[in-house]
Design a protein around this nucleic acid. Structure first.
Lengths: 239, 239
DNA sequence: TAGACATCAGTTGCATCCAATCAGGTATGG
DNA sequence: CCATACCTGATTGGATGCAACTGATGTCTA
């Protein structure tokens, strides 16, 4: 295959290695559930899609396996991991604890710019919550605001290992899972937002203990809601 | 290279893939600091040492990079990561929190067999602490007992994601770092063991809150001692 | 002598080739 | 008719070859 260094198509000149690039693209798809749980990832198919050889594809799969996204069965291939309800709960317990820690650290370390971002995350969404728009759009906007809120707090914790640990956990749950639980219920979303507000206030007041407890409870509730939704609506969507 | 399937040497017939095997061997060496921080890991040298080609070596390095053990610089190679004192402290905060969580979960879930193992971890060591043996041996025995104590609690937490998260963190600190802080001071070791005993009692009494707080403080102290030791004794051993 | 530039050895990144292994289907014997 | 052995296509695992990139050394010039 002849390279064209000047071409602007996606496969040339990116992050250095092809394997990293393929890994993050596939990871993206898995998290968004564009690739369903249990799918076999074939070297050849992926290689052909990306217009590369199988070598970097194999490296990408190893990376994803190390990140816990897929499991490699020797001589059989790589398969997308799924989580049972039990897994969702176990991950939730750990995540609640860590995000609680992040909130307590953020209460001490957050600067003005971050405070501004955190506040705007829920206030801008609160506006659209009042206007009655289409469901789909609402949920999408919510997920975005939610993401911004949590990631800002995480950033304000100032601890990169904490950030990474939480990122690792989040990677293990395909996003649309928790998305599904909330998309259908604006009451859940409203409660969720109210909790965000209280957490934000605790952080701004530099009340580390309160911020921690509120955040912990917040995540736990969210996880429970998710688990409940999975049980009720789609018991076999996952795994 | 001709393969000899019947031979019992280490490279044939193990865990399926060569890359996994190479990755764990190198990881082992890095954690034990047999390979110093900052070392470039060369494909060719590793391949020759293991008697394999560069392909599985490259995969192993990708795995290690995903685990945070090395950093791959495009077109330059993989280099062993080190941690500054700041990193040690940041990791310590997260680890203290997670191990605290593990202790509180263990207080609820621990079964008799695990309780037995946990207790024997420090009691068997307490005996040798009284006999005045050679320093080196003492420290080695201590590290073993310490390992057993913590891993048993972790196991008793019954949460595999928690276990994995802590394992990920521990991997990031070459072991001999915290080892060094303690090896020289039997007073530190004694205090450490006393704390273990208190934690064990809280767990056995099913006092989750107390177990959590004690464990959290325990790890924090240990991390501080380590950080202090690095600053005092060997400020440029790490990074 | 200092700095810019060409060259070169060493190394990585990717493609291609071959061997090893697995799953599923088919033939064969009981 | 069922069970077992075997054969075959599909797929992964690993080896090798070659191009591209990096850093360093040496050379030329002002």
């Amino acid at each position: 295959m002849t390279r064209e260094p000047h071409s602007s198509d996606e496969k040339t000149s990116y992050d250095g290695s092809m394997s990293e690039r393929v890994a993050s693209e596939l990871q993206h798809r898995i998290i968004l559930s564009k690739i369903p749980v249990g799918t076999w990832l074939r070297h050849d198919a992926i290689a052909r899609e990306f217009g590369i050889s199988r070598t970097p594809v194999r490296e990408a799969l190893r990376i994803m396996a190390a990140r816990g996204l897929v499991t490699i069965e020797p001589h059989r291939g790589a398969r997308v991991n799924g989580q049972s309800v039990q897994d969702v709960l176990e991950i939730g317990v750990v995540r609640a604890d860590l995000e609680g820690l992040a909130a307590s650290l953020a209460a001490v370390h957050m600067d003005d710019e971050q405070a501004e971002r955190m506040t705007s995350a829920w206030s801008s969404f609160a506006e659209t919550l009042e206007q009655t728009g289409p469901r789909e759009e609402l949920a999408e906007h919510w997920i975005e605001s939610n993401e911004l809120f949590h990631s800002t707090i995480l950033e304000a914790s100032g601890n990169k290992y904490l950030q990474q640990a939480i990122a690792d956990l989040r990677r293990k749950l395909p996003h649309n899972i928790s998305f599904g639980a909330y998309a259908g219920s604006s009451r859940l979303i409203a409660r969720n937002m109210a909790e965000h507000q209280m957490i934000a206030e605790a952080i701004l007041a530099q009340d580390a203990l309160k911020a921690r407890d509120l955040m912990n409870a917040h995540i736990r509730k969210s996880v429970e809601a998710t688990a409940h939704w999975i049980n009720r609506k789609a018991p076999n969507t996952v795994r």
